[in-house]
Design a protein around this nucleic acid. Structure first.
Lengths: 193, 193
DNA sequence: AGGTTTGATTAGACCGGTCGTCTAGTTTCT
DNA sequence: AGAAACTAGACGACCGGTCTAATCAAACCT
């Protein structure tokens, strides 16, 4: 029997993602996640080897969704590459502004988890790498279609992503969207100078 | 009697800073810090009200040092403002490259602590604000002495700090200095175009 | 078909560590 | 000597992740 298995597992992952995105990894206990999910504690170790491995699975799941969204947006052929990219940043800003509880697990967990668990760190590293390379690819598309001025795509993609990560962190600390707006304005300048 | 008081208190703060910079806040217990410091547990609650208040004090202490360093560097009159700033970024890169264990508590604790403790969040918010405004001030100095091209000082300072925070996070995830080098190169371009 | 086996799933006990408290003791200064 | 600052570390209540044993579902086999 696979369906129930997968459902329960996925349900635990999703519930945990919401809670952990709010409170962090170490400070949340399995109890909290499992009671919220309505899944008995005992089941946990049937689906996951340990909390660490669970965390890794959670991040993998997160990036899978994130990248799927990204691919959907970046493939929108009705828009120029520049417009698609602008839409990406705007969404980032909107999402973070909408609810105070962090959405971006890279910002939320990156610092905490990097020296705590190698598997989780590697998942974050690979996930962010994928994001940056997709941005770079879109920048190249934009240079080809003329909607983006010529730049070093890889370096620029990394710079922009770094900028937005930092902006998210500051926005989190300030509980304001202003740092993100600053990033947006700068991004606009950079991609159309 | 103040001296011993301050010494013990300070010693606990410094020991904790090292440990917490490596492992994060929630995942470290008071025990670990106190045994490392050679201070018995019982003393802790003489100097601090709670773990949270201790964390806040720790951050305040961290920013006090950081800003003192910054002021020392930024006041170096032998150098142009641009050189002073370049030196700041270079130091940031060197420090992070030197030891894998994070130095920058903003990157390490920002995400974790922001939704965990308001006093700690506010301390981080104020500290980063101070850093950004010092950078902005130096940018203005640089524009005045001609070593830095004319820009919106406040916005640029924030952008650069954001960029470097994000770069630190990625460097942490990758265990490589490359993201920081990317930030450095971009910073150079920006401040001398 | 009906009993049996197999594996998926659950329940909750378990040990160790957490933070924070509290009382007794020691040091230090007046 | 006495008062205040400080230290000592046992203690309690609780919660963490882990594991073993019991339960359940369903698929198999004669």
């Amino acid at each position: 029997m696979k369906t129930r298995h997968d459902n329960t597992r996925q349900h635990v992952l999703e519930t945990g993602q919401r809670i952990i995105a709010g409170k962090g990894f170490a400070s949340v206990g399995l109890n909290e996640i499992l009671t919220a999910a309505g899944v008995p504690k005992g089941s946990f170790y049937h689906y996951f080897e340990s909390k660490e491995q669970y965390g890794q699975a959670l991040l993998e799941d997160y990036f899978a969704r994130y990248l799927a969204d990204l691919d959907a947006l970046f493939a929108a052929e009705a828009l120029s590459a520049q417009e698609r990219l602008a839409c990406y940043w705007q969404r980032w800003l909107d999402k973070q502004a909408a609810c105070a509880e962090q959405q971006c697990l890279v910002v939320k967990l990156g610092g905490e988890v990097a020296d705590l668990s190698d598997p989780m760190r590697e998942t974050l590293r690979d996930g962010t790498g994928q994001i940056v390379s997709r941005i770079a690819r879109l920048l190249e598309t934009g240079m080809a279609d003329g909607s983006i001025p010529p730049l070093d795509a890889a370096a620029t993609a990394q710079t922009l992503y770094q900028l937005w990560l930092g902006a998210s962190l500051l926005a989190k600390l300030q509980r304001q969207a202003q740092p993100l707006e600053n990033a947006l304005q700068f991004t606009r300048q950079l991609l159309s100078c």
